[in-house]
């Protein structure tokens, strides 16, 4: 009799299998089966998560031990050595990650519903329900940004996906609500990621799902308070 054969419903089935997986006692092949199921079977993943939560206080017995600096250097080499990824690759990475995020948000809502329904799990919800996402792009422009508005931190994080900036120019971020004139949210700091703080007046409009747009402006931003250059990317904020 293998361990797997003993996992029928009469013996507690998945519940026990999840518990054994989390406890760490299963042999290699069964751990692989369990780990694949975590990726593909939401119900099983939830059982595993439940056991991780239940047993997690035991982890306080792990001592903290400072690792040697060579470890972080090796991590950076592995993750970032080929930083010269082509724009196409970079884009694919981000977009697929965005799609994944949205999928996750659905699961997060389901998890939250479970959390509400199951009274003994008493831990503050940390799901990102306060977050909106926009992918900013426009026809005839290769400028793309991924924008995430976090209503709790009152900021918009921007990931620069593609498109270069001519010297002496800046990208400026605008909020457009309905038919009103665009409201400047500021010049986008250069770099792969940037954060822009959001004023209270703008916060409310963003929460209702305004459009974000990026225009090309003289260095330092539009001199007039309205976009003066072409809009190179735009998109509306959606819940994730």
């Amino acid at each position: 009799m293998t361990l797997a054969e003993d996992n029928g419903p009469e013996r507690g089935g998945d519940e026990l299998f999840a518990a054994e997986y989390v406890l760490g006692v299963l042999p290699a092949e069964e751990r692989q089966i369990a780990s694949r199921r975590v990726d593909t079977d939401t119900d099983f993943a939830r059982l595993v998560d439940g056991w991780e939560v239940r047993l997690s206080p035991l982890a306080s017995a792990y001592a903290e031990v400072e690792p040697p600096a060579s470890v972080k250097a090796a991590v950076d080499r592995r993750l970032f050595a080929s930083t010269a990824a082509t724009p196409a690759e970079a884009r694919a990475g981000l977009w697929s990650s965005l799609a994944f995020w949205r999928g996750l948000a659905v699961a997060a809502v389901a998890a939250l519903a479970l959390y509400i329904a199951v009274p003994y799990v008493n831990r503050p919800a940390e799901q990102p329900q306060a977050r909106l996402v926009a992918s900013l792009a426009a026809d005839g422009s290769d400028v793309k940004y991924l924008a995430v508005y976090d209503s709790e931190r009152h900021d918009v994080s921007l990931s620069h996906v593609s498109g270069t900036l001519a010297s002496g120019k800046d990208f400026e971020l605008w909020m457009i609500e309905g038919k009103n004139a665009p409201v400047s949210m500021g010049v986008i700091p250069a770099g792969a990621t940037a954060h822009i703080g959001v004023s209270p007046a703008t916060q409310q409009k963003l929460a209702q799902g305004a459009v974000l747009a990026v225009s090309l402006e003289p260095a330092g931003g539009s001199p007039t308070g309205q976009p003066t250059g072409p809009v190179v990317a735009a998109g509306d904020l959606k819940g994730i």
Binding site: S56, A74, V75, S97
Partner: peptide
């Protein structure tokens, strides 16, 4: 530990669906 942090970098978005503390 190296491999763990590579995983954390690539799978950080999954945190959203877990009931675990960070």
């Amino acid at each position: 530990l190296q491999e763990v942090f590579v995983k954390i970098w690539t799978k950080a978005d999954r945190f959203a669906v877990s009931d675990l503390s960070p």
